[in-house]
């Protein structure tokens, strides 16, 4: 029973990471109808930036905030420079640019920071387990951070003028222009936010899985699975889906398939969702766009 409870709690902790990355994916999907296949690599790159800042001697939380700001700027820059010219291009061309970004980021990391696995510090006391061994300090802390981020993002989109404008631009670009919203900049801001959220997810998972250029690949897969499960066009659904696949992964890993096939489990979830309920649990019904 204790084992099951621990798997559940651990599932929620990793689920928070998946939920964050899923949210980042869905934010960009909603406004552009493209999936950023480079989202994972961008997050890993941000985590390397954080490690560099920490190694320079900055206190953890200052490095944390700086990394978020740098990642935000990086996201805005990528959208403005690389994706803006592609707004009217085919889906294939856009997928191609994402794949190109993935290649550049992944290999640039290998080039700059080399391929060896690196330890990444956790800001949360991790020496003694809390709540009678149920949860480690890092699990608790990272869950709090991801929940906090998700909460802030919710408040931002739900209650601020800028958040409303970003939602409007995502739903209906031409009407948004008619009320004076600068749609192009809203897309860039969305990219910035997605990159910042990804950076936080990267910094929270790195102490657990260690930092290397491939770190986010499996996480991206679970985020895809979570986004699909919750509904690819529904940010709230994607967050719930992210937590759900986190729990499924941990329970499945412990009792079903073992850790060897964790990625295959994510693939299985993706295929199951597409077969059973392609619109996801909370998504609008997907019209076959052929």
């Amino acid at each position: 029973m204790q084992g099951l409870a621990h798997q559940l709690v651990a599932g929620i902790a990793t689920g928070g990471i998946y939920a964050s990355v899923a949210l980042a994916l869905v934010m960009i999907y909603q406004s552009t109808h493209h999936l950023n296949f480079a989202q994972g690599e961008m997050a890993t790159f941000s985590t390397y930036i954080a490690l560099t800042l920490i190694n320079v001697g900055l206190p953890y939380w200052i490095a944390f905030v700086l990394t978020i700001l740098i990642s935000f700027a990086m996201g805005v820059f990528i959208e403005r420079v690389m994706l803006k010219p592609m707004h009217n291009a085919s889906v294939l061309a856009n997928v191609g640019v994402f794949i190109g970004l993935l290649l550049v980021f992944r290999n640039a990391m290998g080039w700059i920071f080399d391929y060896t696995i690196k330890a990444f510090p956790s800001p949360f006391e991790s020496d003694h387990p809390l709540l009678g061994g149920l949860i480690s300090g890092h699990e608790l802390g990272s869950t709090a951070v991801t929940l906090g981020v998700l909460g802030i993002v919710y408040v931002f989109f739900r209650f601020t003028k800028l958040g409303l404008a970003m939602r409007a631009a995502a739903f209906n670009a031409s009407s948004s222009r008619l009320v004076g919203i600068r749609v192009g900049w809203m897309l860039a801001l969305g990219w910035g936010l997605a990159a910042a959220i990804g950076a936080i997810a990267g910094m929270m998972i790195a102490p657990v899985v260690f930092l290397e250029p491939n770190m986010m690949l499996g996480i991206l897969l679970y985020a895809f699975a979570g986004a699909l499960l919750g509904g690819i066009d529904n940010p709230g659904g994607a967050v719930i889906g992210g937590f759900a696949v986190g729990i499924i992964e941990n329970l499945g890993g412990a009792y079903l398939v073992g850790t060897e096939l964790k990625l295959t489990l994510a693939l299985g979830i993706i295929i199951c969702v597409l077969l059973v309920k392609p619109s996801g649990l909370f998504g609008r019904v997907v019209q076959s766009r052929v």
Partner: peptide, 25 residues
């Protein structure tokens, strides 16, 4: 079969997932 009936991105996503999972299998 499952992915093709939906939009092109679903196929891209599914096949990407397959590519990531293959070495593990």
């Amino acid at each position: 079969f499952p992915a093709l009936r939906l939009g092109g991105l679903y196929l891209a996503l599914t096949t990407f997932a397959v590519a990531v999972a293959v070495p593990q299998i």
